[in-house]
Design a protein around this nucleic acid. Sequence first.
DNA 1: ACTTGCCCTCGAGCATACTCGAGGGTTTAG
DNA 2: CTAAACCCTCGAGTATGCTCGAGGGCAAGT
Lengths: 150, 150
Amino acid sequence: MTYSIKQVSQKTGLSIYTLRFYDKEGLLPFVVRNRSGYREFTDGDLLLIKTICCLKDTGMKISDIRTYIAAVMRGTPSIEERRTLLQKHREYIVRQQRLLAQNLAQIDDKLAIYSSPDSRRKVALDLTAAIQEKQSLNLANTFENAVLDA
Amino acid sequence: MTYSIKQVSQKTGLSIYTLRFYDKEGLLPFVVRNRSGYREFTDGDLLLIKTICCLKDTGMKISDIRTYIAAVMRGTPSIEERRTLLQKHREYIVRQQRLLAQNLAQIDDKLAIYSSPDSRRKVALDLTAAIQEKQSLNLANTFENAVLDA
DNA sequence: ACTTGCCCTCGAGCATACTCGAGGGTTTAG
DNA sequence: CTAAACCCTCGAGTATGCTCGAGGGCAAGT
């Protein structure tokens, strides 16, 4: 059983345009064409596309995915290279996770303020401080239009 | 004490170009200009820029950041709106975290294969399966150039 | 006055990753 | 044999987020 580009689009969630774009970019060198020039995807191809999505969704650039896929196409001699590539990308993902967690914490702090019973007082206090800072520095008040009904 | 755009660039890690771009995009309506037209950043401004970076680094689009900042400029009446915006973005971040964790697990699976003592055998097995799949479907072998010395 | 090193705006250019339309061939059901 | 629903390529267009150069003003030291 093989799949048409439309079927693969439905299975992967990638648009037909994107699949063709990836092929153009050299991400799908493993896909076979039939005598009419149509792409015929196998289940094995789907696994490789899943890997591509995995790399893409974690922020790997297309040119780097191409490098990885090219390594896969070379067979066993490229195992070391693949390991190195993925190891480096793994570290990138972990960095992303750390940053995401930190930023989430910061957003949760803000949400705590906005959700608290006396949010109006807290927000007004913050804003007042900002306004007074500008004032004490003899700067124009850019918060002129802000309302402060605490 | 106020800061020049260069100083803010150094403090935030954003390039001067990016800071000016953000201003152009309406992300920095709180920044005051002196009589020469130079931007003068306060410590309070830096806090707001930190928030902007937090939203940007978690994938919020500039247009949405603009909406949030515009709400901040309106003062206490926009608290509800801000809470809703951040709540929605929070969920987006959590989704990102989930996906990142899933994809990381997938990459760790691959790394386990590439790092195992008999990685050559495992990779060769995988590749053989893919080649035989194409063969059994009467498709051309796109792995023609692959080496398989297990 | 002049040089150096900032600052400004405006608009063009670039990188990335799609997205799409035109023009044209293929497959299949009636 | 024809219409509908696919498939193809090529190249242009779009969205986002910067990045930069040209042209020019401002501020401080010599």
